[in-house]
């Protein structure tokens, strides 16, 4: 995960707390999405950025997981096509593991 983004997420988590703030991901692929979810939950596993060793405890969801909570027309228009392109099940499965 981008180092600058790690810094921003850290700031936001300190400001709003882990109960109020959630992270929504748009990753193209399972592993990278999982890595982002892990980084905001338990810290940067690559020990590269400001979240190295910092456990924010934030919950991250991939956009695909939030389909039911979003206006269906908006979802279709904004994300619908990518369901045909990306490996939805694999991404969801991976991101989910970091919320346990």
């Amino acid at each position: 995960m981008d180092l600058e983004n790690q810094a921003r997420i850290k700031e936001l988590a300190e400001k709003y707390g882990k109960d109020d703030l959630i992270v929504v991901l748009g990753g193209a692929e399972a592993e990278a999405s999982g890595l982002a979810a892990e980084t905001v939950a338990t810290g940067d596993p690559t020990f590269a950025g400001p979240l190295s060793g910092v456990s924010l405890g934030l919950k991250a969801y991939h956009m695909f997981e939030l389909k039911d909570q979003v206006d269906s027309e908006v979802y279709e228009e904004q994300v619908g096509m990518m369901e045909m392109v990306l490996n939805v099940d694999e991404i969801i499965e991976e991101v989910k593991t970091y919320r346990k």
Partner: peptide
């Protein structure tokens, strides 16, 4: 792919196909 961006041309082809 190892960097987490997937197969970029293939994703584009699938988008064109989906269109």
């Amino acid at each position: 792919e190892p960097a987490g961006a997937g197969d970029v041309p293939l994703a584009n082809y699938k988008m064109i196909g989906a269109l």
